[in-house]
Write a protein that binds this DNA or RNA. Structure first.
Lengths: 214, 214
DNA sequence: CGAGCGTTTGAACAGCGTCAAAACAAGTGG
DNA sequence: CCACTTGTTTTGACGCTGTTCAAACGCTCG
């Protein structure tokens, strides 16, 4: 049965309709992943599509120089794992313990062909991912560390619609996302706190002051 | 009539079916743009979708520090100008004299809802754009200039399926695409030529040696 | 309480950005 | 055909910013 075919992850619930996006329910399962547990690996066959229910996920690629680049952070409501070809071009792992909705790719394609509204929804989802990726490119385009980190915090705040930003990911993750070292990220955050651009009640929580939150 | 509503560009052909992608023809017009002519501007209403027939296009965003980031280069066969919201989040301009197929957005959405195959094609197009953007993020993730420029040349060669790469864009464009200055791009290319990684018959043409083309 | 991991901070170095000038290419008009 | 203009590309010198290497600090959990 389906739940057996999904090798990774643990304790899948039985197949039923899972909500991939508001107004788009597809047959799939909900699975739980531990922190740092791999969801799928590079070069594996891409038979499933995923939606974050709770927690946080990172998609990464190993670079030629041995470093890893984080292609994206995926938060509740985001989908990931779309692929044109048969193989994965990135690997994905849970950052914190996460609940993930898993839908068979063929089920998605089936729905897209049958149901015009579903096709529209899927297209809108892909466009949303496109926009998020475009914003990521803009972040990386900034030449200095301060602008990148500030933009990163802004984006998180905007996606969460809150000036209080929880950082599920480590400094190293943020660095690999922004093309910086973890030390530079740490230093920049400390400096922001020193000049009162942000408050840092703990290392994994940031509060943006009004001027930045805008 | 439609051709009047499209303000920018010149000499639009009458409305007919234009090929947006292999196997996807939609009602639209073909237009010609001069080098550096704007196709659409930031914050304008996003009523059209575009496909490059010939030439080359850049999509850009003005950054807070006054610099501009190039979000993507669009070559023949690429589509651009997809938008979820009503307004453009980037501006687009022709790099060289270009022929562009222009399709009304409502026509695209109409086709997507009616025709399952068209919806599939559109989804595939969006996924393709996603993949190109992901590769762009990977480029920008590299910490040194040499790796970024090398990756850039590799991508162009791969998209063109040729070791001979024509660069329609200026050094400044490449810099804004890679998050580098035009001087660094120029220096890096010169260095590549010096150590015979590439040959540069002219400033706008690069030939990759076998070891790099792979 | 101690072990282990993530974070912070420091000091020295290297690479890229900045500023500036020269070389080059392409087009214009005498 | 050549002098002149304009825009792009190349190259040089210098300073700053982020990386690198290293050590100390502070959580969290056994």
């Amino acid at each position: 049965m389906l739940v057996e075919e999904i090798a990774v992850g643990s304790r899948p619930t039985p197949v039923k309709l899972v909500s991939v996006a508001p107004g788009l329910a597809l047959p799939g399962v909900s699975m739980n992943f531990d922190a740092n547990e791999e969801i799928f690996g590079e070069d594996r066959t891409a038979d499933f599509v995923y939606a974050v229910v709770s927690g946080a996920v990172r998609t990464t690629r190993l670079l030629s120089d041995g470093r890893r680049q984080i292609a994206g952070f995926h938060l509740p409501g985001d989908v990931f794992g779309f692929e044109r070809g048969r193989r994965r071009r990135f690997s994905a792992a849970a950052i914190t313990p996460s609940e993930i909705a898993v839908v068979r790719r063929s089920a998605v394609e089936f729905a897209a062909e049958r149901d015009g509204e579903a096709a529209r929804q899927l297209w809108a989802l892909a466009c949303r991912e496109l926009e998020i990726l475009q914003e990521h490119v803009l972040l990386l385009g900034h030449r200095n560390a301060a602008d990148r980190v500030e933009g990163f915090l802004r984006q998180l705040a905007q996606r969460r619609s809150s000036a209080i930003v929880d950082l599920p990911m480590s400094r190293s993750d943020i660095g690999d996302y922004l093309g910086l070292t973890l030390e530079t990220v740490s230093r920049t955050l400390s400096q922001f706190a020193r000049v009162k651009i942000i408050a840092m009640p703990s290392a994994r929580r940031v509060v943006l002051c009004e001027a930045v939150a805008a």
